[in-house]
Simulated scan of single mutants.
Amino acid sequence: MLADLYRKVNKMESVLPFLVSKVLLWRDGSTATHSKSEKDRKTSALKSELQSSGVKGCQLLGEGIPPNCVSLAHLCKLSWADGTCDLLGLSKEDVSSPRNALLLSKPIERAYDNSAICFYEDPADKKLKLHVLWDELKSQKLADCQWLGGPKGKGYAELTNAFGDTTYGDLEARPLQYYSSTVVPFRRVLSAHAQLSLDRARRDGKMAGSWTFQDYHSIENVLTWLQTAELQEPPIAGSVSEASEVISMSSAPAAL
């Protein structure tokens, strides 16, 4: 029995790189298309819902950040609505849920979108915390964000006023804030993003250390499928109700 358990564990470890590189297509993995007006409408609606739940300003830096320096980050992207999100147990409706979004300062949102940072669950207190994956980013000021043009970018003075000398490294282990038990971020999506971003940072030589995290079961259903279905068509998961997820937070992390 012990040998069988080792075999299963080794099999899970062996399929993870395949999952990361082939199944969860992190970039351009969907044929879904959305017009700019549709994206703007959905983004505006999600912002309103998050703000109605109590979110003010940035969910990492607080309400002192000017609104024009805050962006909405989709955890599972709109363009995945017909593909990858199914593997994470989300429906097309879930993609437009406020649980699939975070309000973050623009430099943080851009770093998240480019897999340079991630959010992990601290086993000590179960809080979601930020980790900077790219070594080169740790000393970089938020105002100098390379994805916003740096010192030559439009709005640089505004970013400097908002963030001063704060660096990405200053945000290490900063807890993510959410203000309603019914608007808890989809942890399995954040965990999948963390695993994929960590794999990419290692592959691209962006990190010298050996940081890792305890996966909080975001991709357990996908790993099970990979082992039992022998890489057949992925399952089409139905919507996971918000009520059942909130109830299961303390008893069944795999459902999050």
Rank of each mutant, 00 (worst) to 15 (best):
D28W: 00
T182R: 14
R41D: 04
P17L: 04
H131K: 15
A194I: 09
D40G: 00
A237Y: 15
S97R: 05
D122L: 10
S30M: 02
G238P: 04
S180E: 06
G62W: 10
V55P: 02
A254D: 08
L103G: 08
W211D: 10
V9S: 07
E245G: 09
F119M: 10
K206I: 01
R202Q: 12
H193S: 07
W225S: 07
P107G: 03
L133S: 03
A157L: 12
G29I: 06
L133G: 03
D135Y: 07
G169H: 01
T166V: 14
S37P: 00
G209Y: 01
K129G: 04
E63T: 10
L25C: 09
L159A: 15
P151F: 01
G164H: 13
R27P: 00
S105E: 01
I219P: 00
Y168P: 08
V222N: 01
K47L: 03
V95P: 00
L231T: 12
Q146G: 01
V184W: 05
S250Y: 11
A81R: 13
S91G: 14
C58A: 11
E172T: 09
N161D: 15
K8M: 03
K141E: 02
S244M: 14
G64L: 10
V189E: 01
A81V: 08
G209C: 09
E230D: 15
V184K: 08
Q140S: 13
G209Q: 02
V183C: 14
K92C: 02
P107F: 05
K22H: 12
P175V: 05
D170L: 02
G29Y: 01
V20M: 13
E220Q: 13
H74K: 05
R188C: 12
V222I: 15
K39F: 02
S197T: 07
S115Y: 13
P175H: 03
Y6M: 11
G155C: 09
K42F: 04
A208V: 08
S244L: 13
D204R: 12
L60V: 12
G155T: 07
R110Q: 15
A162V: 10
D122W: 02
G149Q: 05
W225N: 03
I108K: 03
G54A: 10
S248C: 09
L176T: 07
F119E: 01
S91H: 06
S197C: 05
S97F: 09
W26Y: 08
L137D: 04
N68D: 15
L148A: 00
L128I: 14
N161T: 14
L2E: 12
R200D: 05
S71Y: 08
A81H: 10
Y120E: 01
L5E: 07
A162C: 11
D215L: 00
F213E: 00
R188D: 10
T182A: 10
D40W: 00
K47H: 11
W147E: 03
S79G: 01
K92V: 08
M207E: 05
P107K: 05
P17W: 09
G205Q: 08
N100K: 05
